[in-house]
């Protein structure tokens, strides 16, 4: 049973991304949306925590929310992939359930 975890808050504002990363199981997927996309940035104090999970867990950011914040996909942590809304829908369909970290 794979779970898609969505995180919509900046990891610099609250703990939801860290809570999520501490709860994910191997084979799960994490999708950062809205202000959550800041969690995908390379070179931040939290990048190592995200990168450490990016092997056992697939980590994605929503492309449209990245662009809305002026972040180029080239600034993402290695192993973090940008997807569009079509990718979001596919992730929901491919995983068994979706958990929003609100």
């Amino acid at each position: 049973m794979a779970t898609l975890h969505t995180v919509n808050k900046s990891p610099f504002a609250n703990q939801s991304l860290l809570s999520c990363l501490n709860h994910v199981k191997d084979g799960d997927s994490v999708l950062m949306i809205e202000d959550g996309v800041y969690g995908g940035l390379a070179g931040s104090g939290l990048s190592d925590a995200v990168a450490a999970k990016a092997g056992s867990v697939q980590v994605f950011v929503l492309q449209e929310d990245l662009e809305a914040r002026g972040i180029d996909a080239g600034r993402l942590i290695d192993g973090v992939t940008a997807v569009g809304y079509d990718g979001f829908v596919n992730l929901v369909a491919e995983t068994d359930r979706t958990q929003a970290w609100l």
């Binding site: 919509n8 809205e34 202000d35 569009g84 809304y85 079509d86 829908v89 369909a93």
Partner: peptide
């Protein structure tokens, strides 16, 4: 959807998600 309109983004994100889901045949 549990967040109001024009607050952060939930109602907008949800709308785009639903539109994409229907476009994908769901």
């Amino acid at each position: 959807i549990s967040e109001g309109p024009y607050t952060h983004q939930a109602a907008d994100t949800a709308f785009k998600f639903v539109t994409a889901a229907i476009a994908a045949g769901h």
